[in-house]
Structure formats: C-alpha cells, structure tokens
Design a binder for these strands. Structure first.
Lengths: 246, 246
DNA sequence: TGCTCTCCTTATCTTAAGTCAAATAGGAGC
DNA sequence: GCTCCTATTTGACTTAAGATAAGGAGAGCA
C-alpha cells in the first residue's frame, strides 16, 4: 500500500499567515482580533497531497478542521467499497466540528480530493472560546444548521427519489448557483454547466455509482433535456429539467 | 378529510407551568432564571391530537418547538406517499431549530404521533437570547451536533446497507439503550425488546415500507436470531445480531 | 357474538439500480 | 506519435426492495 497518509505539518511562526487563513473562513466572520489570538497557538497548518487521508471514521477527535485551500471529501464506505459522500468541502469550509460535541470520535472519513491545506483547531481551546464569544457560537450554529439542512435533503433524496431525479436536482441546483438572476427558464441560449467534480465523485455524492450516473445522464440526453460532453453539460430544456427535479 | 389540523393553543398565564416545561428540556439546562423569564412571553403552548400537523415542509418558520409531552415525528414524503422519518421526538426534544438559522422555511413536516403538548418559541427572541447567553448557545450546539450525527448515520445506512442490516442495527441500538451493562452477549436468558413505535412508523424511520420490514424481521426469525410476537422481540442470538449489524 | 378499523403479514410480480465485464476515451509523461 | 493509467460509457445479468393484492389478527364497541 502506497503511503497515502503522508502529510506535512508546519507550525508556522504564529503570524499573519495563519490568521489570514482563519479570517478566510466565515466561521470567524466579525470575530475580534483578540479571540483569534487566543486560539492561534492551537492552530496547526497541515498539508495533504491528493488522496491524503485527514482522518478516518472512529478516529479520536481532538479538534476540528478548516480547509485553507484545495478540496476535501467527507464520506463513509461500506465493506464492499461503495462510498457515500456527505459533503465536499471548499476553502473556508469547516469539518469535523460535530465530533467535538458529541462522541469524541469522527463519524466519517475525510480525504483530500486534491492537494490541500488544512488547519486543525484544538477542541478544548475552541470550546473555551465559544463559551466566551456568543458571536462565534452563533456563526457555528449557522454552519451546523446549514449542514443539517443539506443532510436532510440528502436523506430525503436517497429515500424518496430515484437516481435520475437526483441528477436533475443536482443540475438545477448548480444552475441556480451559476446563473442566479437568469434562472427563470426563459433564456434563449442553452445554459452551460461545468461539473466541478469528477463524475466518479459526483456519483458518490448522489448516493450511486458511476455506471448508474452515466446511464441517468444518458437518459436525460436521450430525452433532449441536456447535452453532455465530458464534464461540460448544456441544459437544452431548463423547464423540463426543473420539472423532473420537482 | 377530517380536521386533522385541529389544534388548541393556550397562552397560559405566564407562570410556573410553562417555565417547568422549558426546564424539562436539556436545551435549558443550567440556564439562569432571568434568561427563561426573557423568552417566556414568547412561548406558547399548543395542544395537538394524534395526527395533528404541527407544520409542513416549506411553511415559514417563525420559531422552533420543544415537545412537552407526547410523541412527534419529523418526516418528508414523496409524491407517491412514501414517507421518510428523520426523527421521532420525545418529551424534552426540540425540533425546527435549524430553520431559524438557514432558510426561514421548514425543511420537513412535523406531525403528532399521539396526543402531544408542544411549546413554540419565537425565533427573534430566542436568537437575541442566544447572543447574550453562551451557555444556551453551547447547549444548542450540542443538540445540533447530535442531530447531525444521527443524520450522518441515517445517510450511511440508506446508501450503504440493506434493510435487514438496518433492522439489525436498530435492534442492537435499542438493546444497548435498555440493557447497558448487560450487553456483552453472555446473558443466559433471551433479551427482550418492546418496540416503542408501531412497525408502520419503524419502517418509515428505517427508510423502507412495512412489507419489507416484515420480511426482514421474518428473515431474522427464520435464521433463529430473534423471535417476534407482535411488538415484542426476543433476541435469541445477540452475537449473531451484532455481527449482522457490523 | 359479530362488526369495523387499523395494523401487520404473506405471496406474487415488477423494476430500479447494483455487479461484472469489456470497450472507449482522455491526459500526463516520454 | 506511443504508453500507461485513470475515468467514463455501454451491455448483459442479477437482485433487493417496492407495488399490488389479499388474508389474518387484534382492539374497541355495540
């Protein structure tokens, strides 16, 4: 087995560097300088290569993480190797927080999808700070709520919708992201989406496998709703797509 | 359609009554009297009969809820009527909190499974209190984290395990609840579990339908692992059950 | 005792989606 | 260009679990 766990930790001279990275996360939005200074000593910057494991399910959780740069997936695997992605973290996102407050063990695995810079923050210091800083607590509450909501959707979709519907929803959702303001379905030219994840990853996010995702996209193409060229997707019929997504 | 939405709101004379109900929830654990007094004016007690709808998906959320007595399910439904339960609330549990911080609309439906007493708490007042009361914020964070964790398990199970495994896990989990200390599998007499939900409800919690649940229980019986008599389940082979649950 | 209602179970059938296997495509590096 | 490697697609097959339908079982009640 190749050393995929290789990582590279640097306790940088406690300077602006780290502080800026923290500031890059909305978790620390509008948090006073002094509060940042208080946790700074417990923040460590780690560097992970593509496929580097940040933690595995069941590992003891001594803190949580903020993604500085790169991309990280949180997922679980069945014994047979099927994978379900719970979240793909983008820079500024935090992950692993829930384990601080509940079981002390991570509930999922985290792996870098590409070369990534990750900050780890010590549990005890952070909790202490939380207790003194209501604004920070509110920020965290908002984040947890957002995650909760996205998991609620995921549960609903897994349990109540078929794969093609989930794919349609994914596309509609990402269409809203990219074309807000222009999403009334009355645009003249086909709308274009570039998949931000490999289809392999997308399949695992949608709770399926690449073969099935392929077939779903093929079906949507056959029906004249989209046109797929590798990771580029043209939406040919936004209304029908929205309708499929309910 | 019979009037299932009938409810019965009472703004009780702002007395001990309500305060005690609030105190009954761990959300207000160790929260000072003064803080309680501050939200009390915005707390309303509602009474719902069995099958009373507390809110539906998409309803505007002006606050959140604490269950005083009874039992409430949070769920979503597909167009075809299949139902996925996200959580069954017991007295003291809160629900609907996440909508306060994220979209302003409820992400699921809530319905009383039996006659229930529900407290509603106004969003704005609660948020204001949160900002001043770090301890309350921490309590909420712990709750949200616990919910998050249970949804993570649910996603994993829906996506990665078959129904029989989910049933086995449910049994093991409830065995741990009831027999902690005596759960090493070496007990002489068969361990007994009384299902706390109708099988109809259990099926919807496990992401399946009653017929399939029935078949899974029948399979476990056939394999000599359990013995089912209505809502009473004897665990005949704890080890094998644990093994099925992984 | 029989009636009704709701819940649960069993049997048969169907289907969405996973498995397995093989062909194709695309990039990175040489 | 060619080679290796990974990602994607397609096809044939299998299967878990949903749909449908019907039978049974229990509670409450007259």
């Amino acid at each position: 087995m190749p050393s995929r766990n290789s990582k590279n930790s640097t306790t940088v001279s406690p300077g602006q560097n780290l502080k800026n990275l923290l500031r890059g996360s909305s978790l620390f939005d509008e948090i006073e300088e002094s509060a940042l200074d208080e946790i700074l000593p417990s923040v460590v910057k780690h560097h992970y290569p593509r496929h580097g494991m940040i933690f595995s399910e069941g590992d003891p959780a001594h803190g949580f993480f903020i993604l500085g740069s790169g991309k990280v997936k949180l997922f679980n695997q069945s014994d047979e190797g099927k994978e379900q992605i719970l979240m793909v973290a983008a820079p500024g996102d935090s992950f692993g927080e829930l384990s601080m407050f509940v079981s002390g063990k991570f509930a999922a695995c985290a792996e870098a999808l590409e070369e990534s810079e990750v900050l780890s923050i010590d549990r005890d210091r952070f909790v202490a700070l939380l207790g003194k800083n209501p604004h920070l607590a509110l920020n965290l509450i908002v984040r947890l709520s957002a995650k909760l909501r996205s998991l609620v959707s995921l549960v609903d979709e897994l349990s109540l919708s078929d794969v093609t519907t989930r794919v349609a929803r994914y596309l509609v959702h990402h269409l809203d992201d990219d074309h807000s303001g222009n999403n009334r379905g009355d645009s003249r030219h086909p709308i274009h989406i570039n998949l931000s994840e490999k289809k392999l990853v997308l399949a695992a996010q949608l709770g399926t496998i690449p073969e099935t995702l392929s077939r779903s996209l093929a079906k949507l193409s056959r029906d004249g709703i989209i046109h797929v060229t590798g990771p580029h997707i043209d939406i040919l019929d936004v209304n029908k797509l929205r309708q499929m997504a309910e």
